[in-house]
Design a protein around this nucleic acid. Sequence first.
DNA 1: TACTAAGCGAGACGGTACGTCGCGTCTTCTT
DNA 2: AAGAAGACGCGACGTACCGTCTCGCTTAGTA
Lengths: 207, 207, 207, 207
Amino acid sequence: MEHMTTVSVQESADQDRKAPGRPRNAQADLDIIQAVFDLLGSGLSATALSIEAVAAKAGVGKATIYRRWPNKEALLVDAIATMKGPLPKPVGESVRDDLVMLVSAMRNKRMERYGKVTACLLPEMAKSPELRRIHQSVVEPRREVTRGVLRRGIETGELRADLDVELTLLMLSGPIFAQNVMQWSPLATDENFAEALVDAVLRGAAA
Amino acid sequence: MEHMTTVSVQESADQDRKAPGRPRNAQADLDIIQAVFDLLGSGLSATALSIEAVAAKAGVGKATIYRRWPNKEALLVDAIATMKGPLPKPVGESVRDDLVMLVSAMRNKRMERYGKVTACLLPEMAKSPELRRIHQSVVEPRREVTRGVLRRGIETGELRADLDVELTLLMLSGPIFAQNVMQWSPLATDENFAEALVDAVLRGAAA
Amino acid sequence: MEHMTTVSVQESADQDRKAPGRPRNAQADLDIIQAVFDLLGSGLSATALSIEAVAAKAGVGKATIYRRWPNKEALLVDAIATMKGPLPKPVGESVRDDLVMLVSAMRNKRMERYGKVTACLLPEMAKSPELRRIHQSVVEPRREVTRGVLRRGIETGELRADLDVELTLLMLSGPIFAQNVMQWSPLATDENFAEALVDAVLRGAAA
Amino acid sequence: MEHMTTVSVQESADQDRKAPGRPRNAQADLDIIQAVFDLLGSGLSATALSIEAVAAKAGVGKATIYRRWPNKEALLVDAIATMKGPLPKPVGESVRDDLVMLVSAMRNKRMERYGKVTACLLPEMAKSPELRRIHQSVVEPRREVTRGVLRRGIETGELRADLDVELTLLMLSGPIFAQNVMQWSPLATDENFAEALVDAVLRGAAA
DNA sequence: TACTAAGCGAGACGGTACGTCGCGTCTTCTT
DNA sequence: AAGAAGACGCGACGTACCGTCTCGCTTAGTA
C-alpha cells in the first residue's frame, strides 16, 4: 500500500525505525485535504477539481501531492476517509435509536461534499478493482457497524429471526446514497428523514 | 432542447419541411451509441471513454458527434436512454408482481454498462443542474411508473393508506442504484433479489 | 523525417495528393519561429527558451508546436535554418572576393541569435547523432559552397595544388564559429575581420 | 569568489585559522568530479547530466555539491579545469614545436568529454557574462601561453613582424574548438592534424 | 568528558518545464 | 448541408530537476 489511506495504518507499520531524510510536512497533508474541501465548497464543477488547483489552493507544489498519493483518485479516497471522521459507535439501548443515529451520521451537512467527491471517484472505480478495494476499506467498516446493530437486534428478538441482514443494510444505505450522490428526491432536506426511513424499514423487519 | 435526448422527440418536431442539404446519416447515430457500448464493454476505464475514442471506434468524425449532442455528457445521457429501452408497462394485476417486474427491469445484464455510464456522468451532474435536469428527464418517467403502481396500491387497499410514496420509491430504487453504480453487496447476482427486495419493502408497506 | 527541417523538402515530397483534414496553419509556423527570435532577442537566458514561453509568445497552443517538431531541439534546428536564409552564391571572379563574401555572411548581425540558438542545441547534439545529422543537413550545404570555391581556386591556379581543402575550410569556419558561439576575441566587431581572416588564410594557401 | 574554480586558490586563501566544525571531505570533491566524467562517459545525453544524477553516482547528498559550487554551471567549469590539467609549458626551442605541442594538448582523448561539458555550459554562458568570465578564467591562461609563443616568435624573427597575434590565435584554437565541441570534420582523428594545422597557419605567418 | 559547530546522506519542499492527451471548435475537401 | 479528417487554443496530466530546507548522524576542535 503505497499511499496513506489512513494515517494510523502507516504509523503502526514501521518498526520505530525513523525514515532517513527530511520528514514529510504533516501540515501539508492537512492543507491539501482542506484545499480539496474548499474547492468543492466553492461551487465549482467536480471535473474542475484538478490536482493543479488543489496544489495552488493549498500553497503546495504538485510533487508534494504526488509524493503522498499516486493519483487524483487515491487523494479523493483519503479525502472521503477524512470527511467520514471516526467510526460511529451505537449506544445499544434500542435497535431503532442506533439505526437512526447511524443513518443520520450518513446525512449531515458534510455529506454534500461527500457526494461530490464520490461522484469524482466513480468513473475510475467503475473500472479499477484496486481503487474499489481502497474505497471499500474506508466504507465497509461503517457498513459493518450497521450489520452489528442488525445482528444484535435479531439476538435480542427486536428483529425477525429470519431477517436478511445484507438486504436490510442495502435498504438503509441505498436510499441515503441515492440522495447524497444522485441528489434524488428533495425530501433529503427533511430533518425527520432518517427516522422515517428507519421506521419504514423496521416496520417490515420487526419481529 | 438542443440535443436529441430521444430520437422520437426530434423526429416529431419538424414539420414535414425537408431540410436543405445532405440529410443526416441515421446509421451514424446507431454507430456512435454502439461505440459507446463497445468501449465500455471492452473493459477499459470509464475515464477513457473519450469522445475521441468513441469517434474512432464508430468510424466517425468528431464533428458528427458534436452535431448531434452538445457535449460528452449529453451523449452519455442518450446512451442511458437507449440502454433503458422503452418505458415498462405494469400489468396491474397485483402491486407485488408489478414492482418485481419494475425492479427486475432495473437490474438486467445491460445494467452493468448502465452503472459505468452513470458513473461517467456523476462528476458533471454534481455541479450542473442543467445536466441533472436532462438526466432526470430520462430517469423520472420510470420512477413515475413506480409511483403510479404504489398509488394504485393505496387506492385498491393493497398498501397502507398513509404510505409515504416517495420514501418507498427511494427504498426500491436506492438499493438497486447502490448495486448498479457502486457495486455494493455481491448479492446483486442473486436472481431472486428483486423479489426479496419487493417483499421486504411490502412487508412494511402492506395494509 | 517527421519534422520539417526545411519547408521546401516537405512540399516536394508528396505527390500532389492533398492531405485530408484541416491543413496546418502556415502562419503559425512563422509565428512560432518569430517567437523564438523575439525571446532570444529580449535578452533572456537560452535556458529560459522554453517551449511554453515560445507558445505563449506566439499565441499558440503547445500542441501546435509539438505537431510540427518532435521536441525543442528540432524546433531550434529549423530556427537556425531560417536564420541562415538562402544558400549564398559565390560570384566566381576571384577566390579572395568569394571567401570574403562567404565569411562575412557567417558574421552578420543575425548571427548573434544564431550563436544563442546553437548554444541551446549543443548539449543535446553532443549525444544525439540523429540531431547532429539534422543540424549538419542545414550547415553542411554552406560548408560545401566554400569547398567549391577552394577547389575552383586550385583548378585556376589561384591556390596551391596540394592544398588541404578540409583543413582550410576549418581554418575559415572555426574562428567564425568560436566567435559566434563562444564569443571569443572581441575583435569580432571589427568590420575588416572577414578580410583579415581570409587574407591570413590565403597567405599560406596561395600558389 | 564563492566557489572553488581551482582548489589551489582556495587553500591559499585561508590564514592558517582552522575553521570550526567538521572539515569538508576532500574525497567528496574528487568523487563528484569523477561522477561527472563517468556520466558523460556512459554515453548518456548531456542534458541528462543533472545534479541529481551526479549526486547519486558519487554517492553524495545534493547539499554536498551545492556547498561547494553555487550551481550546476560552476561545477562544470571546475570539471573543465580539472580536465585541462596543469598549464602546458612551451619548451621554447622553436615556435613550430611549441605550437604543435599546445595544439596537441587541446586535442587529446580527454577532450571528447571536454566538448560535452562545454556544450552543457554554452546555453547559460550565452546569457550570463558572469559565467563567461569564470569560464574564461580557466581558458584564457592557456590562450595566453599561446600568445606568448607567438610574440616570442615575432621577437626572434621566426614570425612576421606585423603578425596579428589575436587573429592567429583564433586560427589555431577556432578549428580545434569546432572539432571538439561541434564535432566537425572527421579528420579530427588524424594524428598529424596538429602538425598540419600549425604548418598551414605558419605558412602564412612566417617571416 | 562534554559542548559546539559544521559536514554529511537522505530526501521533502515550492517551483518550472517537459511532452501527452482530451476537450469542444474550426477549416479543409468530398459526398 | 453532412461527413471524415484532422488542426487549433486550451488546460490538466504525471514526471523530472532545480536549488533550498530540514532531519538524524558523524567528526572534528574547544572547554
